[in-house]
Design a protein around this nucleic acid. Structure first.
Length: 294
DNA sequence: TATTTTACCTGAGGGC
DNA sequence: TGCCCTCAGGTAAAAT
């Protein structure tokens, strides 16, 4: 998409614009004629920086902007042929013209509508480093400014993360799911990393030793890297890449979704526990229940 | 202020 | 066959 010009926009479902202030007509009008200059990501947020708005006339401002995207849990960004038929759960379509690839359609489809798009101004990063994966610019969407760097980001600071854990009373899994401290970790990869690090999900974060916290961080990175290499975790048709292809990491899971199946380390059945209106999966032998709070 | 809970949403699958 | 219930899960507003 980099270098492509947006020739038409169809924002058919306003629920896909909950992050956008201005509504569908504003979204369409402000994108028409603009060009996409790149693609970047931090954690679960991604954005497509835009060129200056030359159609804005007297209101021409120098504030850089981007198309902000969050897939929620079932959102998809699909690259389709120009004029391709309407997707199931299609919410928004961008018709683009690319110098090398010709006309294409970019479709945002989303069954559960937790995902959404927005036009968002870019603001400087707090540390002055590149905003995320895919961009050298220290600029990120305003709605992403509170999101922490993900552990695969070269500018992620391990020491600060470990120190933050030592100040948190909450259960370690809750902290892993908090995107402000470290981003990109959801329910699946939290369970996988905790299993690998042999840490019980209810362990209070501050009770982890510095060594254990670093081990956990190492396992988080290992899980994320393996999942990326395998194209992510697909349980059904919702989790696909831009060409609609499923990832294979579901076959590599060792804790998540393996309730009752033997732990690959010790053979004890994996346990499922209710946690924050979702599920935690862990090995009751390898991941010891933390001692009672003092 | 810090932490925890809840609302948002659709479709698949199970029980009856 | 069809109805009702549960579950999946990221984010941010609301509640504690």
């Amino acid at each position: 998409m980099t270098g492509a010009r947006i020739v038409a926009v169809d924002a058919r479902d306003p629920r896909a614009l909950t992050r956008h202030t201005g509504g569908p007509l504003d979204f369409e009008a402000r994108l028409r004629g603009r060009s996409i200059t790149g693609a970047a990501r931090r954690g679960k947020f991604l954005w497509l920086p835009l060129d200056a708005d030359s159609t804005d006339g007297e209101n021409l401002s120098d504030v850089p902007e981007a198309i902000l995207v969050h897939l929620g849990m079932s959102g998809q960004m699909l690259l389709r042929a120009d004029g391709a038929s309407i997707e199931r759960h299609e919410r928004i379509r961008l018709s683009i013209e690319h110098a090398d690839h010709g006309p294409l359609d970019v479709v945002f489809a989303d069954q559960r509508t937790f995902g959404s798009l927005a036009i968002d101004p870019l603001v400087p990063t707090a540390d002055g480093e590149a905003a995320g994966w895919g961009t050298p610019d220290p600029l990120l969407p305003s709605q992403v400014s509170h999101i922490g760097r993900d552990p695969l980001d070269p500018a992620f600071r391990d020491r600060a993360f470990v120190q933050a854990l030592s100040r948190k009373d909450s259960a370690i899994k809750r902290v892993l799911l908090d995107q402000t401290l470290a981003s990109g970790i959801g329910n699946i990869y939290a369970d996988e990393a905790l299993w690998a690090a042999r840490i019980h999900p209810e362990t209070p974060a501050r009770t982890l030793s510095s060594r254990a916290a670093r081990r956990l961080l190492t396992e988080v990175r290992a899980v994320l890297n393996r999942a990326l290499a395998e194209g992510g975790t697909s349980f059904d048709a919702q989790y696909v890449n831009v060409n609609g292809q499923a990832g294979y990491f579901a076959h590599s899971l060792r804790a998540y979704g393996r309730t009752g199946q033997p732990c690959e380390r010790c053979g004890r059945p994996i346990v499922r526990a209710s946690f924050m209106n979702r599920s935690s999966h862990f090995c009751p032998r390898c991941q010891r229940v933390p001692p009672p709070r003092p």
